[in-house]
């Protein structure tokens, strides 16, 4: 991928764009240009009807079986609807507000959500979005119309981080509302009791949904590279704590790694796709990861 395209997918550059649609478009197009063997073609379109051949139509679309029966050229047209129903579940709790650089976790997550929505709808898939913190804030059911995309992007754009997370309760609520088998894309920092998080996501799996977990963290949340005496203020509870960060760094990094490993193992055991993304990572990695998963779904 050329450097220019890389720039298109650089979170720091993308975040400078004001319009969420533009962001999504930028990400997706930048991504697609760079892709050599695109998995974009050949899925999510089904046969709809035949129509007479007109000069100029691609020959590969001529239905030869009909030609054999009727000795007339008919073109095979495809249904624009899709069976894939995707739910993007986005954590918008106050903890997502954290940033050690220029881009918050929420901005990163929002851009991913927007880009995925754009991609899904462009592929004629149905996409819905649910934003939550303690409770569900927005719940947009999946649709595949182009106008729906505008709506989703508008909602994403309006999302503001606030309050605590309650993943367990919220996911249980969401799961009860999804009846058809769907693709669940769960975007969160997963800062809650890991066992509860795992349990609630596992419930989706039990309901036969395909689940992709995108674990978003800030690089500092992983590396904890603070040097001086530091006062930490909890973004969700406003609680304060004074510590010598460099003294506890080693143990903190160990704890976080342990939690990430736990997520990895537990999700893998339950056929849930899990991946950790830090906000300094380029968006193409996220999209590539999604498309690979999507390809598996067929």
């Amino acid at each position: 991928m050329s450097n220019i395209i890389k720039d298109y997918l650089n979170p720091e550059i993308i975040t400078k764009l004001q319009n969420i649609e533009l962001k999504a478009k930028q990400v997706i197009e930048g991504f697609l240009i760079g892709l050599h063997n695109s998995p974009y073609h050949g899925f999510s379109v089904e046969f709809a009807e035949h129509r007479p051949y007109n000069p100029g139509d691609p020959i590969k679309n001529i239905d030869w079986k009909v030609f054999a029966r009727t000795n007339k050229y008919y073109i095979k047209e495809f249904e624009e609807e899709t069976n894939l129903r995707a739910y993007i579940i986005l954590d918008v709790s106050a903890s997502m507000k954290f940033t050690s650089g220029t881009i918050t976790k929420l901005e990163y997550a929002k851009t991913i959500a927007a880009a995925l929505s754009y991609l899904l709808i462009k592929q004629k898939d149905a996409v819905g979005i649910t934003a939550f913190n303690e409770d569900i804030i927005y719940n947009i059911p999946p649709k595949s119309k182009l106008s729906h995309l505008q709506y989703i992007l508008k909602i994403i754009n309006n999302i503001q981080p606030a309050k605590k997370t309650n993943i367990f309760q919220v996911l249980n609520k969401i799961i009860s509302n999804i009846h058809k088998r769907s693709l669940i894309i769960f975007i969160s920092d997963l800062f809650e009791e890991p066992d509860k998080v795992i349990q609630s996501i596992k419930n989706f799996r039990y309901s036969k949904h395909d689940v992709i977990v995108m674990h978003i963290l800030d690089p500092q949340e992983v590396n904890f590279n603070y040097k001086r005496d530091t006062r930490f203020i909890d973004l969700e509870t406003n609680e304060k704590i004074d510590t010598q960060a460099h003294h506890i760094r080693k143990e903190y990094v160990k704890t976080i790694k342990k939690i990430i490993d736990k997520y990895k193992i537990e999700f893998e055991n339950n056929y849930i796709d899990y991946n950790l993304f830090t906000t300094d990572q380029s968006y193409d990695k996220v999209l590539l990861y999604y498309l690979e998963k999507r390809k598996k779904l067929g």
């Binding site: 903890s95 997502m96 507000k97 954290f98 976790k105 920092d189 800062f191 800030d218 949340e221 603070y226 001086r228 005496d229 530091t230 006062r231 930490f232 203020i233 909890d234 973004l235 969700e236 509870t237 609680e239 704590i241 004074d242 510590t243 960060a245 506890i248 143990e251 903190y252 704890t255 976080i256």
Partner: peptide, 17 residues
């Protein structure tokens, strides 16, 4: 003279601290 950081969660820091 402390460095003040608004952090996502103090859950783990608290335990370690």
């Amino acid at each position: 003279k402390k460095n003040i950081v608004e952090y996502s969660t103090l859950e783990y820091i608290k335990k370690i601290n």
